[in-house]
Amino acid sequence: MPVIDMSSNPQCERQHHSPVKAELVVVNANGTLKNVFVWIKSGLPSGRWPQPQQAARLDQNGCIYQPHVLGIMEGQQLEIFNDDPVNHNVHAESVVNPAWNESQPPRAEHKFKKFEAEEILFPVTCSVHPWMRAWVGVSPHPFFAVTGDDGSFSLKGVPPGTYTIEAVHEKYGRKEGKLTLAAGGSATLEFTYGG
């Protein structure tokens, strides 16, 4: 992974004790891929799914977005924090949902944003610090996850049925797999990316 050069803004650089690596491709120790957004693309019964009461959180900390990939439901609040002593602009580069670009100075109030339409994935960027990039997936239901340090994902509470599961990575793109889930059972699906 390439190291980020933060010298254009020393206040960002000072917040890190070691070089910061970009998260474009993060291969875990077990050879799996981190930061892959996984969701049920089709097969769910139609209807509205309850939204989480809690807002999803996107931090700007050390001039890095945390988390790097984030899933939220349609209409769910996204709370955006600026924990840095520097100005950021937050640019949601959504295509289906209206795009927006707003400044967020240090010590400014948190921003609350909503996305009302399904859109997987779109980048959120900061032009003050062009290495800053997060990815947001807006799902119409709560069955989505992002792979972590062991490359696994888990979708809980899924009703029985046959589904198309999609995995989306910012560099390696989209993969699909089929899965049938019996009542009260569980199933496993593995995605393999080449390159």
């Binding site: 960002c12 100005n87 602009n89 400044s103 032009s127 610090h129």
Partner: peptide, 21 residues
């Protein structure tokens, strides 16, 4: 897009000149 507003910049005539700003 490092300065989202116009004609002012971060609501000022002279914002902190950091990064892309």
């Amino acid at each position: 897009l490092s300065v989202p507003d116009w004609p002012l910049s971060y609501g000022k005539l002279m914002p902190p000149m950091e990064g892309g700003i």
